[in-house]
Design a protein around this nucleic acid. Structure first.
Length: 1097
RNA sequence: GCGCGGGUAGCUUAGUCGGUUGGAGCACCCGGCUGAUAACCGGGAGGUCGCAGGUUCGAGUCCUGCCUCGCGCACCA
């Protein structure tokens, strides 16, 4: 190791920028990996961000946690390769481009040209790549951005195709006709995780409609919140076990809002439980009927021309469905086969006609009703209501009062398009699915194997999702994405293509059969429209066209574990040992996103989990607790902090502010605090060491190192504490409690190292002569700092690298974790994550708990002394003649230290407790309560208010002491010692339970001429030192000092000499007369005026 | 509506198995200390521990209900 050079002044931004260029020059990131060539692999997988949005502070949070775990594992000896990644497909990209090119419909895009449109998308995804790269580098997130995986690359897409083919071959990929949330504006359906992005609360008209029975003069009431689905009605569903009533309107309603109504004498049928909710008329109940008795009854279609009956026998009849409840509506569910999932399933089961009354454009198809045809469904709610309300109703077969019973506005959350805000329509359509329901048990089983942080995300939120798993709708009626590689002929024969080679072969086969295909080169672009141009040949010799869909872009990212390596087409040796991955980390919003799609793909393709550990991060909010979003304009720009406090402070703040999974309220002031407290303090501790080490030519490799056992108690104490803190820090890391680790370490640096160890050691290094004591201190600081650097490095990698390099000559990122390098041990695996703590702690200095406890007491005593002085009005610089420490453990090894801290001439241990103390008894509820039961409070009161506690305690010790028939033993009371009145003393309590210690400090308050002289000397010295600093004098400069005091206590010669030495005065003149001079400074001490003058010698 | 996680001083938060006096930091006020930094130390002020019940000798902590915020889920018609 080289000898340290002086630290210099801190400019954290400059320091970090310097390091960034050094790292770049050295290839630091790469060498941190090659350095661990022989280590066990630890596999991290980067969740790909999309670069068509600007990076914000929330990305810095996620990248910090990714980085810190990877750096930590690297230091532990693992080989941690980190490939970057970009998510480049999907609707967000298309929408962005559509906005820019003003192409707001599919027709417009196709008119513009699919190739040109996709070219624009391909370009758009890199809009902010540079910004991402700069942010990533500046924050020191070490990830390979020069060789990332990119979801739009042919290699990546080919791997996705391969995965789809695996699903296709195992029957998990299927084409279905299903009701899906569909946006007529973007012309595409959505998967459940996309739908979840767009729920909005809206108020809409809901209607109660009469369905006139064919064979009876009565109507069944049904309710719907989507009047536009009524023309498509082909059935009514009732619960077989629900009780319904047949009721006759008895008299006119008293008041009536809106349209609809009923005449006296009309008969309606609805669930008994909902009568009060629904009916606005007084009715006579004719009879009660079971739902099952209603089944099979026929009713008049509302819009007779809208849906052709076909060969359905059940159309427009009452059907039975056990999911019907009476929580809302009428207990009768209006069923429009094409516009509801339950409706569709019931319709298929019961044989209802499946006919669309609404087109893909969201408009009613011709032939529905003259007043509705061609109109957009959401625009004609009122028209539907009017048609129903007219006399006889929309079909003319209803009662004079019409077919509308009531309308009511209804407030509910309804899904909207997450890109265009357009309300989604549930719409039956062709779509492709992955049969996730078939592997549900596997999903649950694999999820159980994942170590989730926090565990409730895995068990609760994610587990819940998996238990309700639905088939994954993966096709999109869009342009920019991985094309669905399935070709289909007119008979429904299909082929799924799993590679470029296979595509080429099939194209060649088709060409041979006379189909005129465009060329299909090795680098054929695996995107639309290129792949659409190919017509393949089915086994029956018929032409097959590609199913015109692209994949849900979440499917792409779900393929990342293998597609990043172009598996199985190349780099097989890379993928196999890297799966499942060890660690992923993303925002909790990815639970249903990436966390799910990874598992979905790995389960269906590899029958395996995709990741072993998942850290799910909380959302990031602004300082007011509001979610950060572009629209609110409350996004914090990371550069505001990178350029001010630096990335170290920003990262440390984010990690220490709270548990990773808790929402983080990002407070810019918190970053400033972290900088001021943690990093400035660390720097000054380092500076203290480095400056003196440089001055003294300290050599950390010197052979005459002083063994820890031979160093001062103060040194042994701080080193012991270092071990204790480091172990705790490590174990917090293992348990994902990074916030706790960082908070404790910060407190150690500020309170223990800086405010106690360094402050108490300052004079040791001032000593210009070489001494064992000074060396002990230097070695101790050296060891402290180098260990701290290693502990801090994963979280905040900059400053500690500078420090480590200066102190040891090598970068901290190649250093070993102070608690061991299990990744390097023979036969290690990444799963030994938890086991290393045990094996490697002997690397740290020896722990001495007794010494740590003793120092704790000493520090408490020092604080108690200050409190006593304040209470007595005795200033700190005026020494006390003597002090007594009463009771407690032997603190004699720290007597000198205490004398200095307390400014007491001599500290004595006093054995005669009685002299200063009296005792008090306090009840110990924990042991008293079980036997005293309800009398505990009375007994406690008696103990507390004992007139003579000493006597009572003696009786208790003697045994058989009873209070309210309960025997009180020594365990039931706690002895509190407090000072007797009239003493300048303070009692402190330390420890808990049996280890509880009470120690008192008593200070002598008398004044003597010697004490007054010493006190005055200290005050003068302090003022002169301040003046020296004010005059910008160097530490080694000497001065000429003049001091004038009048009516002051006598200043003894020895104290004058002391002042001169302390202030480096080559000449010191003490004058008891006041000769005012303008350039003299003056101050008051205990009512005495002191004038002084400092001049550089 | 259902599920998960929060609600503790003006702000950020700790609080173990229920134990009687709920700790810190920031900010504020007073004092002290300092050749020690944006530091440090002591003291003060600041708390209906979201609300209401319950269990208990005793509840921030356990139970029930409610309010509220966030997230997730949900077309239940």
């Amino acid at each position: 190791m080289p000898k340290p050079s002086p630290a210099g002044e801190l400019d954290s931004v400059e320091l970090e920028n310097n390091l960034l260029s050094i790292w770049k020059e050295e290839g630091a990131f790469v060498s941190s990996i090659t350095n661990r060539e022989s280590g066990a692999p630890f596999i991290f997988l980067e969740g790909p961000p999309t670069a068509n949005g600007k990076p914000g502070i929330h990305h810095v949070v996620a990248r910090t946690y990714k980085d810190l775990v990877c750096r930590w594992k690297t230091m532990q000896g693992f080989r941690v390769e980190r490939k970057g990644g970009w998510d480049t497909h999907g609707l967000p990209v298309e929408i962005e481009v559509q906005k820019r090119l003003d192409l707001m419909s599919n027709e417009q895009i196709e008119a513009f040209g699919m190739q040109a449109f996709n070219d624009a998308c391909r370009e758009s995804v890199w809009t902010y790549e540079e910004a991402w790269r700069e942010m990533t580098e500046r924050m020191a997130y070490w990830v390979d951005l020069d060789n990332p995986y990119v979801t739009l690359h042919n290699d990546y897409v080919e791997s996705c195709w391969w995965a789809l083919k695996q699903m296709f071959d195992s029957g998990l990929l299927y084409r279905g006709y299903k009701v899906l949330p569909y946006c007529p504006q973007t012309g595409t359906s959505y998967s459940s995780h996309e739908v979840a992005l767009g729920y909005k609360e809206v108020e809409e008209p809901s209607v109660y409609v009469k369905f006139k029975l064919v064979d009876e003069d009565a109507s069944i009431l049904a309710w719907t919140t989507t009047p536009w689905t009524l023309p498509g009605n082909v059935g009514l569903a009732v619960g077989p076990d629900v009780t319904y009533i047949k009721a006759r309107i008895a008299k006119e309603a008293e008041s009536w809002d809106g349209s609809g109504g009923a005449q006296v004498g009309e008969v309606v049928i609805l669930a008994k439980d909902l009568q009060k909710e629904v009916l606005r008329h007084h009715v006579d109940i004719i009879e009660e009927i079971k739902g099952s008795e209603l089944v099979g009854m026929a009713y008049e279609p509302l819009f007779p021309d809208a849906v052709p009956r076909g060969d359905s026998e059940t159309a427009w009849t009452v059907l039975s469905a056990d999911w019907v409840t009476t929580t809302d509506g009428t207990g009768v569910v209006h069923t429009a086969v094409m516009y509801g999932e339950d409706d569709y399933n019931l319709g298929m089961e019961a044989g209802l006609p499946a006919h669309h009354t609404v087109g893909m454009d969201g408009n009613f198809v011709d032939g529905t009703h003259p007043e509705l045809d061609g109109k957009y469904v959401k625009d004609v709610d009122q028209t539907v209501i009017q048609l129903l309300s007219q006399p006889g109703g929309s079909n003319g077969k209803g009662p004079q009062s019409g077919l509308l019973y009531r309308e009511k506005s209804y407030l509910h959350d309804y899904p909207h398009c997450w890109r265009t805000d357009h309300p989604l329509l549930y719409y039956a359509m062709d779509s492709w699915f992955v049969k996730m329901t078939a592997v549900k048990e596997k999903l649950l089983e694999f999820n159980d194997q994942v170590e989730w942080a926090p565990d409730w995300v895995g068990e609760g939120r994610f587990g819940e999702w998996l238990r309700n798993v639905k088939d994954w709708a993966i096709s999109r009626e869009r342009y920019w994405g991985t094309p669905l590689p399935v070709w289909r002929d007119e008979d429904g024969n299909m082929k799924c293509i799993g590679s470029i080679q296979e595509l080429k072969d099939e194209v060649a086969k088709a060409n041979a059969a006379g189909i005129n295909n465009p060329e299909c080169p090795d680098d054929v672009d695996l995107h639309r429209p290129v792949v659409d141009e190919f017509t393949l040949l089915s086994d029956n010799g018929k032409p097959m066209k590609r199913e015109p869909f692209v994949m849900d872009c979440w499917f792409d990212s779900g393929c990342a574990p293998f597609a990043q390596f172009h598996y199985p087409f190349e780099e097989n040796d890379k993928f196999t040992p890297a799966f499942p991955v060890d660690y992923i980390c993303e925002g909790v919003d990815q639970t249903r996103g990436w966390f799910y799609t990874l598992l979905a793909v790995s389960t269906t393709v590899f029958d395996s989990p995709a990741y072993k550990r998942c850290l799910s991060l909380g959302l990031i909010l602004d300082a007011e607790g509001k979610k950060m979003s572009k629209s609110r304009g409350n996004i914090v720009n990371p550069w505001d902090h990178f350029n001010k406090e630096g990335a170290d402070a920003t990262r440390w703040y984010m990690v220490s502010a709270g548990a990773p999974w808790m929402p983080l309220k990002f407070d810019p002031n918190g970053v400033r605090e972290t900088y001021g407290k943690m990093f400035l303090t660390l720097w000054n501790v380092y500076k203290f060491h480095a400056d003196y080490a440089a001055l003294d030519g300290f050599d950390p490799d010197a052979i005459d190192q002083i063994p820890v056992a031979e160093r001062k108690d103060l040194d042994r104490w701080i080193l012991s504490k270092l071990s204790t803190v480091a172990k705790e820090y490590h174990s917090d890391f293992v348990n994902w409690n990074y916030h706790k680790a960082c908070r404790d370490l910060e407190s150690f640096i500020v309170n223990d190292i800086s405010n106690w160890y360094v402050r108490r050691s300052r004079r040791r290094l001032w000593d210009e002569a070489e001494s064992n004591d000074k060396l002990s201190c230097q070695f101790t600081l050296h060891e402290l700092l180098t260990t701290l650097c290693k502990l801090i490095a994963p979280v905040s990698p900059f400053m500690v690298d500078t420090i480590h390099r200066n102190l040891t000559g090598s970068p901290v990122h190649l250093a070993d974790w102070p608690l061991g390098v299990p990744g390097l041990t023979e036969g290690a695996t990444s799963d030994s994550w938890d086991e290393e703590a045990e094996r490697a702690t002997e690397l740290l200095p020896a722990q001495d708990h007794a010494l740590e406890n003793l120092m704790e007491l000493v520090r408490e005593l020092a604080e108690a002394g200050r409190r006593i002085r304040i209470a007595e009005g005795r200033r700190q610089r005026l020494p006390c003649l003597q002090g007594w420490i009463v009771a407690g453990p032997d603190v004699s090894i720290f007597t000198d230290l205490l004398q200095e801290e307390l400014n007491v001439e001599s500290i004595n241990t006093e054995l005669d407790l009685e002299k200063f103390q009296q005792i008090k008894l306090n009840p110990n509820f924990r042991s008293l309560a079980p036997k005293a039961r309800q009398n505990v409070n009375q007994i406690a009161g008696m103990i507390k208010s004992a007139e003579n506690p000493e006597e009572m305690y003696d009786q208790i010790k003697a045994g058989g002491f009873m209070l309210m028939d309960v025997e009180i033993t020594v365990d039931d009371v706690e002895i509190i010692r407090e000072q007797k009145e009239g003493y300048s003393a303070e009692t402190i309590n330390l420890g808990q339970g049996d280890e509880k210690v009470q120690v008192s400090l008593v200070l002598d308050m008398q004044d003597t001429p010697e004490l007054l002289s010493k006190g005055l000397a200290r005050d003068i010295t302090r003022r002169v030192q301040a003046k020296r600093k004010e005059l910008n004098l160097e530490i080694e400069d000497t001065i000429e000092l003049t001091v004038q005091t009048k009516d002051a206590p006598e200043l003894f010669k020895s104290d004058m000499e002391w002042i001169a030495t302390e202030t480096r005065a080559s000449q010191a003149l003490f004058d008891s007369e006041e000769n005012f001079s303008l350039d003299f400074d003056s101050f008051d001490v205990d009512g005495i005026k002191v004038n002084f003058h400092v001049k550089r010698a």
